[in-house]
Amino acid sequence: MSSPKQPSLEFAESVQKEHGGETLMLCFQCGTCSGSCPSGRLTSYRTRKLIRKAQLGLEDEVLQSPDLWMCTTCYACMERCPRGVEIVDIITILRNKAVSKGIMSDEHKKVGQYLLANGATIPLNPKYEEIRERLGLPRRPVNTLGDKKALEDFQKVLKATGFDKLIGGD
């Protein structure tokens, strides 16, 4: 791993091997992304800077930075990028790399654990079962929120990808 200001060429290369990541080096730092980013308008997050650091291979700085998690994946930047850089895809690749090194907030871990436990990012509770019934719907839907065998299959698929180890639950 690189030290904060020590570039790692391998890191930038590994980003370019992933789907969308091959566009990383096309960025010429015009800043249209930062200017279009609603998150950047509200915080000190700068999309352009994040992409530059990835190009330079500043692995630690990119993966450890809270900025990496400021993007709502709204695609405003990507739609306007004059160089066709697949910015959201690159941010997703960088996030995957952070998570694979265990860099992940507790809140996000919890979302992952909910997914594994319920087959959904949120559980269904009795309050909403009641509301469903009042609306003329079955108390539990026909998806993994209401079908035990389906939930087992869902978990089997998720575990086959190693997701359970990634989020530290089972």
Partner: peptide, 14 residues
């Protein structure tokens, strides 16, 4: 099951 969520779950592991 979950779609799964394009922002959060895809960010963990594609």
């Amino acid at each position: 099951g979950c779609c799964p969520a394009p922002g959060v779950i895809k960010s963990f592991e594609q």
